[in-house]
């Protein structure tokens, strides 16, 4: 069975276009607000939406998403609530949805139950930055049975062996982390991304989406020249929190830049 994510990339490839993948932290500051933003993303032409699950110790995240996570936790948001939020959201949209969560909430929830409940609710993929494929055998096997895509990450420091392993394990797309660092870091466009992406393409024809540190339309445009998708997180979360009125205009400017 082909997932909504895989289908989206297939259609985009035919049209020679890049996916625009915006991120939002669920429940920052409320789930009602998150629903409006997801629908706004769709209205502005997003192809896939990444939904963050708050966690007390978000190791891969910079200050912007750490603070969003704290606000969401304060609002009482848990993995369980995010899953039922997706179920509710599915009444209003069929856009592919990817959860970004740390591993311990999934472990505590129970891997098999998580995979089943997430899929039933309408989740299409999951990104777990602190779970490398080496440790994900059971999650991979239970998620593949029902085509829930587990998306793994590559970094600028990934070795050829690691690239092969991640390319093989990842489903839906491969998440290329554009910087050595945390979400919201400053992007460095020095050509190393092109090298690693073309290296990765030797082993796989799966789509490659780039995230961490993408904040301006110019950066998004530059990245879309070498990738299949562009993920924007911290910059959106920051705007939503600081100048929510300018969010729509900003999302449209990103969409127009990603071709």
């Amino acid at each position: 069975m082909i997932s909504r994510i895989e289908k989206t990339f297939k259609v985009l490839k035919k049209r020679g276009k890049n996916a625009f993948i915006p991120y939002i932290m669920a429940g920052d500051p409320s789930l009602e607000g998150t629903k409006d933003v997801v629908l706004l993303f769709e209205e502005c032409g997003a192809d896939i939406v990444e939904i963050g699950v708050p966690f007390t110790d978000p190791l891969a995240d910079g200050p912007t998403i750490q603070m969003a996570s704290e606000r969401a936790l304060k609002a009482g948001i848990t993995l369980k609530k995010v899953i039922s939020f997706v179920k509710d959201l599915r009444q209003s949209t069929q856009i592919p949805l990817v959860l970004m969560t740390y591993y311990n909430p999934v472990f505590k929830y129970g891997e098999e139950k998580f995979v089943r409940d997430a899929k039933d609710a309408g989740v299409d993929g999951v990104i777990i930055p602190d779970l490398p494929p080496d440790e994900a055998k059971s999650l991979i096997s239970s998620s593949r049975k029902i085509s829930l895509n587990v998306i793994f990450l590559l970094a600028p420091t990934s070795t050829p062996d690691r690239i092969k392993k991640v390319a093989k394990a990842s489903r839906g797309f491969i998440y290329y982390v554009s910087v050595t660092g945390i979400t919201g870091s400053t992007l460095l466009l020095d050509g190393s991304m092109e090298t690693l992406i073309s290296e990765t393409r030797k082993y796989t024809d799966k789509p490659i989406a780039v995230g961490f540190g993408v904040s301006t339309p110019d950066e998004a445009s530059a990245i879309s020249k070498v990738s299949d998708g562009v993920i924007v997180g911290s910059a959106i979360v920051k705007r939503l929190n600081e100048f929510p009125d300018g969010l729509k205009k900003y999302i449209i400017s990103l969409r127009e830049a990603i071709k």
Binding site: F55, D57, N104, K108
Partner: peptide, 19 residues
């Protein structure tokens, strides 16, 4: 039992896996 900061061990956590 939980998984935290790169290893699996005993962890003080709530029912939702937050530390």
């Amino acid at each position: 039992i939980g998984v935290f900061q790169g290893c699996k061990s005993y962890l003080l956590q709530d029912d939702n896996g937050n530390v």
